[in-house]
């Protein structure tokens, strides 16, 4: 271990560790890229690939992101961008869940899709893409539906769950699971020019409140479809929320929902009553 640290430090320039050095260290000491990145960050070495994260994210925070586990439920329109941004940010463990394969109607917006990948499972494609983008990230690809019944198995150990689902009933199950598992959920939804984002912390019911008038079926996305840009906008807002939640900084969209209208370029904030605090019997 000491040899590894010495080798890494020798190659650092101004506290920055070039990717070539991370790669060479992995080869020389037969370590995974994840193991090398962990050792580097634990020893105050900032991987050069994250240098533009500085000084917004300090080395200890970069380590925190690397030691975080984020589950992304859905690898389509929202999920593709969410996964890409999480991997580039440096979140070390990512769970990518989606039961579907790429189809032609995904090509107008889903960043992971391309004609050559039609018919391929979205979750597996996500894992391959992220391995190319950031080899230090560990991706667990799950080709399955998320539901309350398999949540504890699929999302074990996740610090945050990101809602990139396209179904309201599955989303409500995810919200319920997150409350049972005690993890924050970043919720996003899109339809045409419109979208919204909110973060729900354990014990809160924001997502249930957002969909409390829902009876069945889909929303306006059924008529409008989704263009290339709306998922990118909403996914990026979701990742900003994940970053803040993992690092415990800033003001997340807690007990409030941001509604985005890209046609009129308007944003509205809707506030929700904070969830009642559960009083613990002191006796």
């Amino acid at each position: 271990m000491r040899k590894v640290i010495t080798f890494l430090k020798e190659q650092a320039q101004d506290g920055l560790l070039p990717w070539s050095a991370q790669d060479a260290t992995a080869q020389r000491f037969h370590l995974s890229h994840a193991a090398v990145e962990l050792i580097a960050l634990q020893n105050g070495l900032f991987p050069a690939r994250y240098q533009r994260n500085r000084n917004m994210i300090q080395v200890d925070e970069q380590l925190r992101l690397f030691q975080s586990r984020v589950a992304v439920i859905g690898c389509g329109g929202l999920g593709g961008y969410v996964l890409e941004e999480l991997a580039r940010l440096g979140v070390g463990q990512i769970i990518a869940v989606d039961p579907d394969i790429f189809e032609e109607h995904n090509l107008n917006r889903q960043i992971l899709s391309s004609p050559a990948l039609l018919g391929q499972p979205k979750a597996a494609v996500a894992a391959e893409r992220l391995a190319q983008v950031n080899p230090a990230v560990t991706v667990t690809a799950i080709q399955d539906y998320f539901c309350l019944a398999n949540g504890f198995e699929l999302l074990a150990g996740a610090h945050v769950a990101v809602d990139a689902l396209d179904s309201i009933p599955y989303r409500l199950q995810l919200a319920e699971y997150c409350n049972l598992a005690g993890i924050p959920m970043v919720h996003g939804a899109i339809g045409g020019w419109y979208g919204h984002v909110a973060s729900q912390f354990p014990g809160e019911t924001t997502v249930q409140q957002i969909y409390r008038h829902w009876v069945q079926g889909k929303g306006i996305e059924q008529q409008l479809g989704n263009p290339s840009f709306t998922p990118a906008v909403v996914a990026s807002l979701e990742v900003a929320e994940v970053c803040k939640i993992l690092l415990g900084k800033g003001e997340p969209l807690r007990n409030r929902k941001l509604a985005i209208d890209l046609l009129e370029m308007e944003m509205q904030e809707i506030s929700y009553a904070p969830a009642p605090v559960t009083l613990v019997d002191a006796a």
Binding site: A189, I190, G191, Y194, G219, I220
Partner: peptide, 10 residues
């Protein structure tokens, strides 16, 4: 009073 339609896509 403000009314917003249901949005649920991803």
């Amino acid at each position: 009073l403000s009314l917003f339609p249901l949005v649920g896509g991803g």
